[in-house]
Write a protein that binds this DNA or RNA. Structure first.
Lengths: 92, 92
DNA sequence: TTTGTATTTTACCAATCAGTTAATTAAACA
DNA sequence: TGTTTAATTAACTGATTGGTAAAATACAAA
């Protein structure tokens, strides 16, 4: 499992990571802001962000002691287009 | 990770399983036929089929000593619609 | 220069994953 | 009845995952 599509789908296969992406769709956020809604320690969030970063779904900047995260939706394009090949099958 | 969307994405996060789905998109196939293209033992394929079945992406029948597999694309609908919410983001 | 705030790194853990070989089940056939 | 073919189950392995607590790093501010 080292191909782009597998990495993308694997990154999306976790509700915490999908929630993080949903939050980032509304704009940049710091790690602390991203962590706030979850009953989870900061290191756990950092790990999720690492997964998203490796999948190319976010980029991390630096601003003083904050590391603002930004959505990079490009890899989702490949996932959506793979799924699209099956559209006829779920539309009967 | 017990929600439908996570289970669906996790099932898709493996190239062997995606290839199996692609093959099934062309019609039913037995486990042996599905296994043929891969350098992998039958039990490994059975396990992949179990993952796909638990995700609701295939159904298994019975015909003599064969267990024909059939694509059930419905869960892909949810995945596609989740991704659709991000379309604007990858289209700049 | 100390203190506080934000985040990551390290080291650990239990659970799951993707694969194997060997044994088992199920049905067809001679 | 056996024997063959198709597939699954069982038991095992090494790697990865998702979480933790505690220590380390990086910068700001007093």
């Amino acid at each position: 499992m080292n191909d782009q599509l597998s990495t993308t789908f694997a990154a999306l296969a976790d509700p915490t990571r999908r929630a993080i992406l949903a939050r980032l769709a509304t704009g940049e956020a710091s790690v602390g802001e991203l962590a706030a809604p979850f009953d989870m320690t900061m290191p756990a969030i950092t790990k999720h962000l690492n997964v998203l970063e490796r999948a190319g779904l976010i980029v991390r900047g630096r601003e003083a002691q904050w590391r603002p995260c930004k959505l990079k939706a490009d890899p989702l394009k490949g996932a959506a287009s793979w799924l699209d090949d099956y559209r006829q099958h779920w539309e009967q």
